[in-house]
Simulated assay, not measured.
Amino acid sequence: MQKIIVSTDENLRELTKHHTFVMPIACYKSVISNDNSNHIYGYVPLHWHEEIQFVSVLQGEGIFQVNEEYIELKEGDGLFINSGRLHMSKSNTSCTFICLNVSPHYILSQELYNIYVKPYIEATNLPYILINTDELWGKNILNAIYQIYQYIDQKPQKYEVDISIKLTFIWRNLIASGFQLQFIESEELKNNRVKGMLSWIHQYYMEKITLADIARAGQLSKSECCRYFKRYFKMSPLNYVIDYRIKKSLYLLQRSDFSVTEVAYQVGFNSTSYYISKFKEIMRTTPLAYQKKILNNGPSN
């Protein structure tokens, strides 16, 4: 099974182009599992993108994080993730789901976008919406997601038009469910501060980093910075740095011309033994064993 890397820039904005053929959408099946995932980390790491995202769980159970909240989904459940929100997914067992990403501007015409889409995208009280399959609107959305997935897979005649119709149908059902919209400036500021701290870490992870550096990037005190990371990541800021360095090292370990020691120093560790210890703690294997396995199985996508 080929491994998927969710590629992001220094702001955690996903670089993957969510385009399928000529339409600004992507609809695909994804598997997250500790044992047999099609993602390089075994889960989908924290990232964000301008596209809105719909998730429909086909099998198993998954844990989806949106901003600082965690949502458990099981077979038959669905989730809407709003544009620009930090999110990730993992599973303690295994989870297979369909993921539909679509540009908000593609859902309706520009005239209708300003009335029926933009207010929902900008609302700070809607980082996500649980799709309630006990209600008709929820069933309609999940059925339409699966039909879009089939259209892309089977490509019947004029299926692009059918997809466009289904997207409008999905959005109509979502906004008809009666959500009240709010815009709270402090919530938007909090989201931007988190992105600012992550952006700084991802730019300077190869250098020496202190807690004061990270707090300064978010315009926060050191204690408030720690509270932010505990809420969003369930870890301290400096442990996040270590975790990020380990993840960056996975890319380098896929190359046969880098030794473990060279990789350790390139991602910001000043001790090979400490790098190996932290790698084993996070990845449950050693860097050398991981590198050998990857090189024997061929490069990842």
Rank of each mutant, 00 (worst) to 15 (best):
M1S: 12
Q2E: 14
K3V: 07
E10F: 05
E10Y: 07
E14T: 14
T16C: 03
H18Y: 14
T20V: 00
P24W: 08
P24A: 11
I25A: 02
A26T: 10
C27L: 01
K29W: 02
N36T: 05
S37C: 06
N38T: 06
I40L: 13
Y43M: 04
L46M: 10
W48G: 04
E51V: 05
E51P: 01
Q53L: 02
V55C: 03
Q59Y: 09
Q59H: 12
I63N: 06
Q65H: 11
G78I: 01
L79K: 05
R85G: 00
M88S: 15
S91N: 03
I98S: 08
I98T: 09
L100V: 02
L100G: 03
S103A: 15
Y106F: 15
I107G: 06
S109V: 00
E111V: 13
Y116D: 13
P119R: 13
I121M: 10
I121P: 03
E122T: 02
E122N: 14
T124F: 09
N125H: 05
L126G: 06
P127N: 05
P127D: 06
Y128T: 04
I131R: 06
I131G: 03
T133H: 11
L136C: 08
G138M: 09
I145W: 02
Y149C: 08
K155W: 01
P156T: 00
K158R: 15
V161C: 06
V161R: 14
V161E: 13
K166S: 15
L167V: 01
I170A: 07
W171L: 01
I175N: 03
Q182K: 12
Q182N: 08
I184V: 15
S186F: 07
E187W: 10
K195M: 00
G196N: 15
M197K: 12
W200L: 09
I201Q: 06
Y204A: 06
M206E: 14
K208C: 11
A212C: 03
I214A: 00
A215I: 03
R216T: 12
R216K: 15
A217S: 15
A217R: 12
K222D: 10
E224A: 13
E224Y: 10
F233Q: 11
F233I: 11
F233T: 12
K234L: 07
K234S: 10
S236R: 10
P237Y: 07
P237G: 08
P237V: 04
L238C: 07
N239I: 06
I242S: 07
I242W: 01
I246D: 03
K247N: 08
K247F: 06
K248P: 02
Y251Q: 13
S259N: 02
T261P: 07
V263K: 05
Y265W: 10
V267G: 06
T272P: 00
S273R: 09
S277C: 02
A289E: 10
A289Y: 00
Y290A: 13
K292S: 08
K292A: 03
K292H: 09
K293C: 05
I294W: 02
S300H: 08
S300K: 05
N301Y: 11
